[in-house]
Amino acid sequence: MIGAREQAEATGGAERRPPAGPAGRAGGLHSRTRTTLVALAFLLPNLSGFLVFTLWPVFYSLVIAFTNYNLLQAQPHRWIGPANFIKLFHTQDFWLYFINTFYLMLGLPVSIAGSLCLAILLSQRIRGVIVYRTLFYLPSFTAGVALFILWKSLYNPDFGPVNVVIRAAADLLGRNVHGPDWLVSTQNLLGLKVEEVGASAKDFGLGARDALMFMGIWVAIGGSNMLLYIAGLANIPQDLYEAARIDGAGRWALFRHVTWPQLAPTTFFIVVMSLIGGLQGGFDQARVMTLGGPAGTTTTLSYYIYTKAFEDFQIGYASAVAWILFALIFAITLVNWRYGSRYVND
């Protein structure tokens, strides 16, 4: 393995210059060079990987976004300027997939608010906190292909338990329904049209996008966001609550004026990370559960990049889409740097 060899070199390098530590303080300038060499030796395995697999690819991907690079074509790729970007902005599908990506992110506020509620409930002095926490955390810990395959069965329109429960509930109300077609339906709660950007009443309903969104809430609600909120709640000084209670604050006022502002840094962090994750998300679910369908309604930007790069092998065009995604995430990161520091100084 390359990594192991590099590691051996690096350690060898470090041991060949052994007395750097103690002699360092005695030896002046010479030893400072020595410390730098030792530092580089420790850094080398990681830095070489960083340069080869992170830094170079970032720049290379920006370069090929301006070429017609195609892995299937024999002719050498050439510079085509911003043609890929112009093309994608004029491609209807790109905008539809853009909307799909945001549609799946509509679940984020629900999931974040849910995480906060669960964290507040779990922060009371009750029995069984660890048991509850473990059970809530289970979906996000095991999330992945196996769970997505499971949910494909759960959403089966005919015998899947989701619709079984819906039918039973409707039956109690004296109604007879079959339940939504979930993963094979293009309907959605915003009534978005399938073929073009827009909305219509006949597209209103529950379909594949909603199925993935609900599953996303189920996965995330008891996950790391909840754990972050639990930690955030534990850090709120109790005397703030006592002072507010003396002022006659009720439960809602305590939440509104103590808990919520005190949790602002945590919420800010969670929102930023969720936006970044959400923009890149949707690939695994789509590949396992829907193949981006029906009619492209669950194709997110990351799934689009995958199909363009690894099914059509248009890696120039795919890189252009990837850079649009990167630009969006970078914008959020800038907001984070600009306003995040105001919160993060704890």
Partner: peptide, 22 residues
């Protein structure tokens, strides 16, 4: 520089890395 790269989405580096593997 290390910190700045943490936010880079995986799909950006994935394509050049694939070309490198080829």
């Amino acid at each position: 520089l290390y910190l700045a790269t943490i936010m880079i989405p995986g799909v950006v580096t994935m394509i050049p890395n694939y070309a490198l593997m080829v």
